[in-house]
Amino acid sequence: MSIIQIKGLHKIYNPKKVPVHALNGIDLEITEGEFTAIVGPSGSGKSTLLNMIGGLDSPTEGTVIINGVDVSTLSPKKLIDFRLKNIGFVFQDYSLLPVLTARENVEFIMQLQGRKKEEFKKRAEELLREVGLGDRMDNRPSNLSGGQQQRVAVARALASKPKFILADEPTANLDSVSTSDLLEMMQVLNKEENMTFIFSTHDQRVIDKARRVVSIVDGKVAEDIQVEQEMAQ
């Protein structure tokens, strides 16, 4: 089932002063359960594309339909709520709130969703255990390694029960061991819970794990390759 449909997407930054054509007509469809890497040279528009998919910025032209909803028609207020309910985010850096512990970071998102206390307490613990941080739950991000922080970020993204998780260069700041650990964990979640992951990356080892690789060059889709399932493993 298709959960994201992008049609004729254009994004021009600074249209009045020095226009930057970040996206130049992207058509893309993402179906449930995908494990997709967005790749491309620096400045090609990967982050811009992910921001559009995540409803963090509005397109100059074209439509982004998520789960049947054209996000560009949503008011800013509704959009925040939409993100909270439908999209999980993992960022390259500063993903977590530094003043909250791992557990609180995960609980916080569910609290924003207005879930009950007993429910989110339990779920936060489950998720942190699932990402392998059962014993570090009460640490603040500053006491966790980069890889551990990104796991917490994934747990937080999952906590809101989103339709898909967007991760913009989640491994850019990680060493190779943490990178493969994180990817492995994401793969498990993808397989066992059918969670859709869309992530951008420069890292060949990460690209190798993807089941679909979308290459962006100059704001256009240059290549879109479905990797054989067996090969990805």
Binding site: D81, F89, L97, L112, Q113
Partner: peptide, 14 residues
């Protein structure tokens, strides 16, 4: 600024 950006992104309303 960035932290607040993250908070907004993940769904903390205005």
């Amino acid at each position: 600024v960035k932290e607040i950006g993250v908070l907004m992104a993940v769904g903390m309303n205005k």
